[in-house]
């Protein structure tokens, strides 16, 4: 993923640097902060590569950037290509759990629960953000949803880990009483 392509895409109409940053943050729901310096560095790199060009100033004298033809081709190419499913990166959580299972002195259940609690709190945070109006516009909402889904997936994965751990524990030690329970569903 690149900020470069996102900025390029937003330059469908000529914008100056600060405006570009505000637009980006608004669209992504402020969940992805950029500093202005980063924006100008990127713009100058894009200008160097011939993808954008400075095109005059606005009424207040700020210099506007606009796409070159090569830039337009680059944007089109970006949208036309699916985002590559990268290899599971160095996922700290996965590694932590894998190690925890191997080390007898660690209470894996506790690790799972702590992580789940933390993720749930993050999820609640996203939810609060959404309710406070951060996700009300469509682009922002979509980005926020992405975070919610990711957190949700993580919790589900943690739930899954827990039940596998329990099953493993049950088959290695004395079988725990199964609990069909009064619940009908």
């Amino acid at each position: 993923m690149s900020v470069k392509h996102a900025l390029l895409a937003l330059l469908e109409k000529p914008r100056y640097g600060y405006e570009l940053r505000a637009e980006f943050e608004q669209r992504t729901g402020a969940s992805w902060p950029l500093n202005v310096g980063q924006v100008y560095t990127t713009l100058s790199r894009l200008e160097r590569d011939g993808l954008v060009e400075a095109g005059g100033t606005d009424a207040e004298g700020r210099s506007l950037y606009q796409l070159t033809e090569a830039g337009q081709a680059e944007v089109k190419g970006w949208f036309d290509t699916p985002v590559e499913r990268t290899q599971p990166q160095r996922d700290e959580l996965a590694i932590k759990l894998a190690v925890a299972v191997a080390v007898p002195s660690v209470d894996v259940g506790k690790v799972v629960q702590q992580q789940r609690n933390a993720t749930m709190q993050a999820l609640q945070g996203y939810r609060r953000q959404a309710r406070s109006g951060a996700g009300d516009d469509l682009p922002g909402g979509l980005v926020l949803d992405r975070l919610v889904f990711a957190a949700e997936a993580e919790i589900r994965w943690l739930d899954h880990c827990e039940s596998r751990l329990r099953r493993a524990a049950a088959s290695s030690t004395a079988p725990e009483p199964v609990q069909p329970e009064g619940e009908s569903r």
Binding site: Q113, R116, T119, M120, L123, Q124, Y126, R127, V148, A151, E152, I155, R156
Partner: peptide, 13 residues
């Protein structure tokens, strides 16, 4: 479902 639980102020496991 964690998604719906996150609407809550508190989540009890």
């Amino acid at each position: 479902e964690p998604r719906y639980a996150s609407w809550a102020d508190r989540v009890i496991y």
